[in-house]
């Protein structure tokens, strides 16, 4: 299955191990983690070393799962802006945000932001959030067999903030959830996913009435919408 496209500029929490293992179809292609395109990343890690060079500062980041350089171009750091890396010393934990780049075969994050972690629980939170997003992308939203009332924390960044799509999914029927999952996993580009493909692939042994009822209900809830015609759908 091809890479599902998150909204542009979504911020993906990840471990350094995930970043080091991110796949790339060719040198200029987008990086994929869990088959999902990665544009902006956020990582919480310990600063092992700080190397100041003429045009940039390199922070060697280690989160226990691996090491990765975070590179901050000095021209990007404006006076008085919070992107400025004040108070960051070796061994301290930081949260960084930036884009994943590859240079000479070595990966690094081009840092837009770096700030100290004031509370150790943010380190624990980040690991948990990275796993939560990984599971959401690889297993689909919770529900079905999940423990009732046990709502995993979804990535508020990725779904555009507020009530995330997965939160809205929680009280869908199993068939509705299967349809949403199927559409998300089968990006049809601008065209969306054809209703016949949904009927074949979303859940076996459903009547076409059940499928079309479920699709109508999902449309009404604003979870999916028509694309090129009334037979093609995309998730919001």
């Amino acid at each position: 299955m091809g890479g599902r496209k998150p909204p542009p500029q979504s911020l993906r929490p990840a471990t350094i191990r995930q970043i080091l293992m991110a796949s790339q179809a060719h040198t200029d292609a987008e990086f994929l983690i869990d088959d999902s395109e990665v544009t902006q990343l956020t990582v919480v890690a310990q600063v092992i070393d700080i190397i100041t060079q003429a045009t940039n500062v390199v922070y060697v980041l280690d989160d226990g799962t691996g090491r990765l350089d975070g590179k901050q171009w000095l021209s990007d750091v404006q006076d008085g802006e919070s992107g400025n890396a004040t108070g960051i010393v070796e061994k301290s934990y930081v949260r960084v945000m930036g884009a994943l780049k590859s240079f000479g075969g070595k990966r690094h994050i081009s840092l837009q932001r770096i700030r100290p972690v004031e509370d150790y629980h943010e380190v624990l939170f980040h690991l948990t959030e990275a796993l939560s997003v990984h599971l959401l992308l690889t297993r689909g939203p919770p529900g079905g067999g999940g423990a009732p009332g046990q709502q995993a924390g979804h990535n508020a960044y990725m779904e555009g903030g507020g009530a995330s799509a997965a939160d809205k999914d929680a009280d869908l029927t199993p068939l509705q959830q299967a349809i949403v999952r199927f559409i998300r996993n089968n990006p049809g580009g601008k065209e969306g996913v054809n209703v016949a493909a949904i009927a074949r692939g979303a859940m076996p042994n459903q009547t076409s009435t059940d499928i079309s009822d479920a699709i109508d209900a999902l449309m009404e809830r604003g979870v999916i919408y028509n694309t090129i015609d009334e037979n093609h759908f995309e998730t919001v």
């Binding site: 990840a14 471990t15 191990r17 995930q18 310990q46 226990g64 799962t65 061994k91 301290s92 934990y93 509370d119 150790y120 629980h121 624990l124 690991l127 948990t128 990275a130 796993l131 990984h134």
Partner: peptide
């Protein structure tokens, strides 16, 4: 050694340790 202050939830730390071992693909 990294000093972490005077208020850390060790129970939560333990949960994260076990969570990481349960999902080695992204943590190990």
């Amino acid at each position: 050694v990294t000093n972490l202050g005077s208020d850390v939830d060790l129970k939560l730390v333990d949960g994260v340790v076990e969570m990481m071992h349960a999902h080695p693909t992204i943590f190990m």
